[in-house]
Amino acid sequence: MRIPPQLERIWPSMPVIGALLFTSVLLLLFGASPLESYAAMWEGAFGTQAKLLSVIAFWIPLVFSSAGLLLTFKAGLWNIGIEGQIILGSIGASWVALNVDAPSYLLIPLAILASMIAGALWAALTGLLKTRGGVHEIFGGLALNNLAIILTNFLISGPWQPPEGGTFRGTQPFQDGVLLPRFADSRFSPLSLVLLVVAYGLVVLALRNTFWGLKLKALGQNARSAFLLGVSSNREAVIAMMFCGALAGLGGGVRVLSWFDSLRQSISGGIGYLSLLVVMLAQFRLLWVPLIALFFSVVLNGSITLQLRTQLHSSLGGILTGITVLFMLLFGDAKRLGFNTLSEEDDDE
């Protein structure tokens, strides 16, 4: 069955539309008006400057890790360890924030660099476990995610605990000089947006216009023949993981240096898993990724107001994202549904 090209272009938004309709039905069952609910969500995301800035501030780390995942997915890797890579990035930045004394113009680049290195090294572990130890990256990644959480908890309740002791909440607030300059009392730092635009541009460039991008693609399509053609699958896999980890780590760094001002018990809270969803929903199309990430940020931020306004269940935002996943599974795999025109050739339109 063929579908018209116009429809094909908006195909990735179908799960979203379906999920909205389905959630409308749910809201009606709970006795809430869908129109009012979506209006509350809209207000929660765009109602004031502060809310809009919060949407953007949450969106930035999400796109950082999604950008990283574009590389690993391209290489055929399921980098579920992205969550841990974000966390390690935040730990790296926190280490600089807590241990280095320098002027701001040195401290901020150092903290950002440390977050990228920490994320990259953590990702390399997953990569090496796969290439050297034969541990599939899904299992290695999941294990390392847990380890990252344990490491955070150890740090904030042990060596990095605040002087008054004890609490499991987080470290002492960082020195002011290391925090990214924020816009208008919000948690949004324009600097992080600049970094994001540069990083995303580089990822797009690497995937489209470099030989390395081609190698990753070969690897992703067929690792064995790529190897026969002279692409070292192990080496490229680890390198792809490390670049992804660096980007995710940078997202984690932004999280501690502008969203929070200290290392907290749960610094990511599932942003990594969400970014996996973003990239799959976008079907690896480079331009869709930031838009779908924005959709999630809008839904999650909007659902705060929705919850307060309707006093419905607190996980309504989560339900909406969950339903989106289900609809993605229903609509998403176009090939299996018989739409042969949607081939992977289109993936970097």
């Binding site: 919060s54 749960s266 809270g269 942003i271 931020n301 705060i304 107001t305 307060l308």
Partner: peptide, 15 residues
Amino acid sequence: PADKPEATLEGVVDD
């Protein structure tokens, strides 16, 4: 932050 990474006390209080 584990259950609602997107929410902040300030945002909730604003609403």
